[in-house]
Design a binder for these strands. Sequence first.
DNA 1: TTAACCAATCTGGTAAACCAGTTTAATTTC
DNA 2: GAAATTAAACTGGTTTACCAGATTGGTTAA
Lengths: 235, 235
Amino acid sequence: MKIEALTKTDNIALRNDIISKIRDHINYKNLEPGEKLPSERMLSEKFGVSRSTIREAIQTLEFYGLLESIPQSGTFVAQLGVTALNGMITEILSLEEPDFKSLVETRILLELKTVRLAAQRRTEEQLIHLKQALDAYTEKVLLGEDAVQEDLLFHLAIAKASGNSSLNTLMLIITPEIITNFEKYHVCDDDQTFVGIEEHKAIYEAIKDREVQKSKELMKVHFKNLYKYCYNVDL
Amino acid sequence: MKIEALTKTDNIALRNDIISKIRDHINYKNLEPGEKLPSERMLSEKFGVSRSTIREAIQTLEFYGLLESIPQSGTFVAQLGVTALNGMITEILSLEEPDFKSLVETRILLELKTVRLAAQRRTEEQLIHLKQALDAYTEKVLLGEDAVQEDLLFHLAIAKASGNSSLNTLMLIITPEIITNFEKYHVCDDDQTFVGIEEHKAIYEAIKDREVQKSKELMKVHFKNLYKYCYNVDL
DNA sequence: TTAACCAATCTGGTAAACCAGTTTAATTTC
DNA sequence: GAAATTAAACTGGTTTACCAGATTGGTTAA
C-alpha cells in the first residue's frame, strides 16, 4: 500500500465516522421525516470537527437521498422513517469497493435491459445519436486504433435511448469503474475488434427495426466473451 | 415552483457550469489518463469562482470515478481517454431527475436479479440477517402499524445476500427515491400487507432452500401490483 | 385579541487565510 | 560534471470569516 493512500483512507474514515455520528444523533433525537437537523455549525461544534467535514458528510448522505439541504434554511431528513434511515446508513457505511466480477455481472444485467428498452422506445433523435456513436467506433477500429472509448460511448448511447433515466444513471456510475479495470487487467482482446464492428452494427440495426427480442439476443452474444471471463477467471 | 428552489437550482447550475469548464479544459489541454489537472487554486482563478466551488465540482466528478484527488499532490484524471471522459461528462450534465416509472422499472430489474443471486450464494450469516428483517416486518404488520420501512430493509437484506457489492450499491442508491415517491403518491395499499407477510416469508424460504428459479418467480408475484401500477399509471 | 411588521438571529453557501505533507529546483558537495 | 541536499514553492485539506436570504419572536397597530 502506498503511503499517501493512508491519508486518503483516513479522510474517508473520518467522513464515515461523522456520518455514523449524524445517524446516532437522528436516532437519539428520534427525528421524523422532514424534520430539521441541527445547523452545520452546531454539528461541527458537537462533533469537534470543522464545518467542511460536516458538509462533506451531509453531501454524501444527500447523494443517497437521505438528507436534503436547503440554502439559508437548513438540512432536513428525507421522507424516510428512523428505522429505514438507520438501516440505510449502516449499509452505506459497510459498502465495499466493488470487485470486478460484480461490476461485470451488473453491467450485463443492465445492458440486456437497456437494449430491449431502446429497441422499444428509441426516438429518431436517439437513433441518430446511436448511428454517430457506431460510426465513430467503426472508424477507429478500421484505423487499427484502440476503440475502447468509442465502444463504451456506443453502449452509453443505448442506455440513453432506453428512455429510462434511472438505468441511464446507474450505467454512468458503473461504466468508468469497468473501463478502469479493463485497462488494468487488459481484458479487451484486440483480435475481437473486427467481430465487434459486426456485433455493434447488428445491435444497432435491431434497435432501429424495433426488434426487441433479437436486440437482447445480439447483446447476449456480444457479452459472450465477457460472460466467459466473468465466470471462469477470479481476480 | 417554490422560491427557495431557485437558489438551489442556481447552485446546481453553477456546479454544472464548473464541471463543463473542467471538461473543456481537459479537452483543450488534451489530458491523457493519469495526467494531473491544474491545482484547485489555478482553476479557481481561471474560472473566477472560489476554491469551495471547484472542490465541489471535483468531488462530483470523483464520485463518478472520472477524477481522483490525492492529498498534498493533485487531482488526476482517471484511466479514461479524453473521448470517453468527454462523453461521460456530457451525459452526467444532461442527467434528468429520474421519474417514478423509471425507478420502479429499475427496481424490479435489480431485485429479480438480487433474489436469484441470494438464493445461489447466501451465507448462513446473511440468512440470519434476512430472518431478522423478515421477523421485524412481520411483527410490525401484525401490530397493524405501517411497515414500509421494514419492508424496504428486508429487500435491502436480499441485495446484500446477493454477494454482489455493485448491485447492492445500486439498490442503496435508488431505494430512498422509491420510498419517497411511494409516500408521496400513496402507492402502498394497506390491504395488501397481510398478503405481504406470506409473500415475504415464501421468498425467504426459497432463498433459504437455495431454490433459485422459485425465488425469482415469487419476487415477480410480489411485484405484481407494482408492475400493474408501473405500466398503467402515468405520473 | 389578532394580525401585520420589523429587526435580530440563524441558515447554508462562498470566499479567503492557514496547515502539513509533497514536489521541485537551485545549491552544495564530492 | 553528477549526485546528494536543502529550502522554497506548491498541493489538497482544514479552519476561519463573511454574505445574503430565511426564520423567528417580540412589538405595534388595528
